[in-house]
Design a protein around this nucleic acid. Structure first.
Length: 586
RNA sequence: GCGCCCGUAGCUCAGUUGGAUAGAGCGUCUGGCUACGAACCAGAAGGCCGGGGGUUCGAAUCCCUCCGGGCGCACCA
């Protein structure tokens, strides 16, 4: 509907006499938007006002000229000039009726389009370190990323979702040591746990599985393990030095293979938990990309070599640097340290390199707000590797604060004091969690009040929206119980009999759905879909209260049921994109 | 100190990238079930869009500057 009006405006613009509008102004693309106020029609354009500036003409006169030059169209009732030079479009009722028929005909496909023209796009999200279970913050990333991916796929992009597994580096050593220490405890050793180790309780069952797998093979005495180590933080030492010494000690005592065995067991265990958690949450990834594989397949070497060849990398003070200042970074970044060890950033370089090698036309990163300082250097890598600037995009997700009984809960993987995504899902359910997570803009802090979400009150629009869907199902059940059948074709043919304000309002809202999906996808704004669905549910509940569906008059009855079915279809399609179920009964 | 995000009704938040009279939910107040599901509906009250300057036909939206809140600025991961 919107594109139809844009085309009309474009034709009118092209038909304007040259003395009125210059050739340059003729290229202006018309902006059309839904009106907020019904007295302004269904759609409005500010084209004449924007044109007025360029052409140095009176906007109201230009609007009149545009209206006069506009070809007639069967869907348009009338076109008016209003205010400072707005052009308001009033659509004929049957334009809406045809759209209702389209909704029923396309069913689950309604709202899908080919805006993206099959362009390949990767969304990377969550990518939480596999050192413990996902917590409520990761849940927001999962819900946001998955919904965004759904929206982009719905408008015609070829979307792949990827989870980057940070399975290399020091944190993995810390995980291995933490697991090993818990194993030693299970075997009766007594000692103080390192300040910088992972102390979460989730480590204990992993240690138990290690114990079941290896028995006493990896057991060492407390004296062997801790003898001669520097002091830990609580004893006035440095927690980083201490944990590093402990890692070195573990490697001495168990050998690289022994420690690797502990690590792999812990990693597989935790990763399995994360995968299962996300799958239950309805969040699916096409690929789980291992950081280690970047070393194994030579991506890091190739990426660094390419940067050196192209002059974007250089040696200084014995270290290999990336010249990110060329691309606006505040300082250059080290990739290989003086001691020969690669930094985490080297992996990031290789990962971007790898994504480009795989041929994605667009790279979308969903990152935590605390990673914003990191965007410039990743973009720099992409540019240095020859990727186009437009192909790189980052969306930041702000923090989630968890409230329980008005009290803010602390979240830290190290200390083990956090509420997991699993706990949250168990408490409020997947549907409420998915919707709650995306109902606010991603760059807004989210206060997640568990008590409120558990109350199942109207604070949480998920019930409100689902109820509208279930009500339609209920009407259909009633119809059946009374031995009546809905004739959809007859209903669609009789839509002109529906003229109440509620019916008009509902029809207009339904027809706006495809535009809504496009806007949500283009703006990367899933929360707008939630608001749309809530408004749609409101329109339906209002209608439901004002009118009876199952009435004597067959044409009116069928028409109302057709409208109810269209509502159900749009709500179901919208909820599907949000990853929320659309129940027939509640 | 520099950078990013945020500041809109009592509370939690929208506001489709500069449009017409500023929008919801919760809370408060008033009404509506012998009804296809009251998990609902209708109505009312509630605003200096953090303050101040600017840009223009037009600003919650863009620019500058203060004020307040969050986060980030490693040869860590």
């Amino acid at each position: 509907m919107k594109t139809l009006i844009e085309n009309l405006l474009r034709q009118a613009l092209a038909a304007l006499p040259p003395e009125l509008v210059s050739a340059a102004a003729r290229d202006m693309s018309p902006e059309v938007e839904r009106t907020r106020d019904a007295t302004h029609g269904d759609f409005a354009s500010n084209l004449a006002m924007r044109l007025a500036k360029v052409a140095r003409q009176n906007p109201r006169a230009l609007a009149q000229a545009l209206i006069a030059a506009m070809p007639a169209d069967a869907a348009i009732e009338k076109v008016e000039m209003a205010g400072a030079g707005f052009i308001n479009f009033f659509l004929r009722q049957d334009a809406f009726h045809r759209e209702i028929a389209t909704i029923l005909a396309r069913g689950p496909e309604y709202g899908r389009s080919n805006l993206g023209k099959g362009q390949s796009l990767m969304v990377e999200f969550v990518s939480a370190n596999p050192t413990g279970p996902l917590h409520v913050g990761h849940g927001r990333h999962a819900a946001f990323g998955a919904t965004l991916a759904n929206l982009l796929a719905a408008v015609g992009y070829r979307v792949k979702c990827e989870y980057y597994i940070n399975d290399a580096g020091r944190q993995m050593d810390i995980l291995a040591v933490s697991t090993w220490l818990q194993y030693l405890r299970l075997r009766g050793e007594e000692f103080v746990f390192p300040a910088n180790g992972y102390r979460g309780e989730y480590i204990i069952p992993i240690a138990a599985r290690l114990n079941a797998a290896v028995g006493a093979k990896l057991q060492r005495s407390t004296a062997e393990v801790f003898g001669g180590l520097p002091p830990d933080e609580p004893q006035g030492g440095d927690k980083d030095l201490y944990i590093d010494a402990l890692i070195a000690r573990a490697r001495e005592l168990l050998g690289a293979d022994g420690l690797r065995q502990v690590l792999d067991l812990a990693l597989q265990d935790i990763l399995g938990d994360i995968r299962g958690d996300l799958a239950e949450f309805g969040v699916h990834f096409d690929t789980w990309f291992s950081e280690r594989s970047l070393t194994a397949d030579g991506s890091i070497d190739r990426a660094l070599a390419k940067l050196r060849e192209t002059g974007h990398a250089y040696l200084k003070d014995g270290a290999l640097w990336f010249r990110s200042t060329t691309f606006g970074d505040e300082k250059d970044r080290v990739m290989v340290r003086e001691n020969g060890a690669r930094t985490y950033f080297a992996s990031d370089v290789a990962y971007v390199f790898n994504k480009l090698e795989r041929g994605f036309a667009h790279l979308l990163y969903v990152l935590g707000a605390d990673h914003h300082g990191y965007i410039t250097r990743v973009r720099a890598v992409l540019l240095a590797l020859g990727g186009p600037a437009e192909s790189f995009e980052v969306r930041l997700v702000q923090f989630v604060s968890l409230f329980r009984g008005g009290q803010k809960a602390q979240m830290s993987t190290r200390s083990g004091e956090f509420v997991t995504l699993r706990d949250l899902r168990r408490e409020v359910g997947n549907d409420a969690a998915r919707l709650f997570y995306v109902m606010r803009s991603n760059d807004q802090h989210l206060d997640f009040d568990l008590e409120l979400a558990t109350q199942r009150s109207n604070d949480n629009p998920v019930y409100y929206i689902q109820y509208a869907h279930a009500r339609v199902a209920s009407v259909l059940r009633q119809l059946q119980e009374r031995g009546l059948k809905a004739d959809t074709a007859n209903g669609l043919a009789s839509l002109s009999k529906l003229a109440s304000p509620q019916e008009t309002q509902l029809q207009k809202r339904l027809c706006a759905y495809p535009e809504m999906v496009e806007v949500c996808a283009t703006q990367r704004a899933p929360h707008m879909l939630v608001h749309f669905l809530r408004d749609l549910a409101n329109d339906f509940h209002t209608y439901y209260s004002a009118q009876q569906f199952i009435v004597e008059d067959v044409e009116i009855r069928d028409a109302r049921i057709a409208l109810a079915l269209a509502t159900q279809t749009v709500i179901r399609n919208g909820l599907e994109l949000l990853g929320v179920s659309a129940p027939g009964t509640m």
